[in-house]
Computed example of a mutant assay.
Amino acid sequence: MKQRVPRLLPWLDQRQPDVVCLQETKLSDDAFRDLLGDELAARGYEAALAGEPRWNGVAILSKVGLEDVVTGVAGAPGFPHPEARAVAATCAGVRIHSLYVPNGRTPGSDHYQYKLAWLAALRDVVAGGPEATMLCGDMNIAPTDADVFDPAAYEGHTHVTKPERAALAALTDLGLRDVIRDRWPSERVFTYWDYRAGMFHQDLGMRIDLVLASAPVAGRVAAAWVDRHARKGTGPSDHAPVIVDLDEAPDGDIGPVVPPPSAPRARKGRVTLPQSK
């Protein structure tokens, strides 16, 4: 978060979101407030925080109220201790979860098993209601092969394995809708591009930042898109914001690939992930 303040504040001013879910803040709650409390208050935001120094950390910023704030996921394991990966609050009648799902690191590893157990605990929490719910955040899972630039490049890596996708499907089986994919069922849509090897400029990415909404909320979606422009420029995150408008769409339904990729898509089989080299 310390590095992203010069990007976050202008983005808030430009897009004027009512609710913002942040992941990987890497700050204690006190440090977050010291860094951003005044700036957020001046813009009309309250903040619900679940942070820890140096690692993880999530937040919800809201202009429309924060009620019944809960940090963590009941019943979730730690690694070995509980990590700051979830915060939930009710904002204008919608239960919103800001989530930073464990990465999993290597299939079959202890951290991978931790990821699956954490997701199972999250499912139990979401199954308990309420009816109007949104899960927002870095899920560290690409739902299908269509959500990565080349499935062959990800063989042997996390984010695409059958158990991870099954754990994600267990959430959507509760009646949650993947609102970006609902709106753009066949388009090339990514939210994350590795910093290395010019992945962003070649549009070699993944869609791992999701918004899952229950039927009463999904039925209100007026626009759903990826703010790819926020990934450009100086000092960006390696993730682009996902924007969902309920009831009204002040920016219009801009679309998931704005502006267009800086370079044409590479042919399948030509690209190796940077971490594989």
Rank of each mutant, 00 (worst) to 15 (best):
S109I: 01
A215C: 10
L99D: 02
A121P: 05
Q202D: 13
G252I: 10
A146F: 02
Q16W: 12
R33D: 13
S276M: 15
V189K: 05
A50I: 12
L12E: 03
L122F: 10
D68H: 14
G205H: 00
L204W: 01
I141S: 07
P261Q: 04
K26F: 13
R177A: 12
H81N: 15
P102C: 08
A120D: 13
H157W: 15
G57R: 06
R165A: 11
T172M: 04
A117I: 07
I254C: 08
V125Q: 04
H229F: 13
G129A: 05
G37S: 08
F200W: 04
I96N: 02
E52M: 12
P6M: 08
A92N: 09
R54T: 14
D34C: 15
V221Q: 01
S98M: 05
T272Q: 15
Q202K: 12
P107I: 05
D247C: 11
P261M: 07
R7V: 15
R181K: 01
E39P: 04
L168Y: 08
A170P: 04
V258Y: 10
H157C: 15
R188N: 06
T106K: 14
V20K: 01
G57H: 06
G235V: 09
C21Y: 00
T191L: 07
T25P: 07
K115W: 01
R123W: 02
D29W: 01
R7P: 09
I141A: 04
A170T: 10
A31L: 05
I243D: 02
T106G: 06
F200K: 04
N140W: 02
G44D: 07
S98H: 00
K2F: 14
G129F: 00
L174F: 11
S262G: 15
R265I: 14
C21L: 12
P10D: 11
H111Q: 14
R207K: 06
T144Y: 08
M206W: 10
A92E: 03
R15Q: 09
H157N: 15
V160M: 10
V64I: 14
G205E: 03
P53L: 13
V73G: 02
D150K: 00
L49S: 05
A223Y: 08
L119K: 00
D38W: 12
D245I: 09
A84P: 00
A86H: 13
A249C: 14
I141L: 05
L168C: 03
V126Q: 03
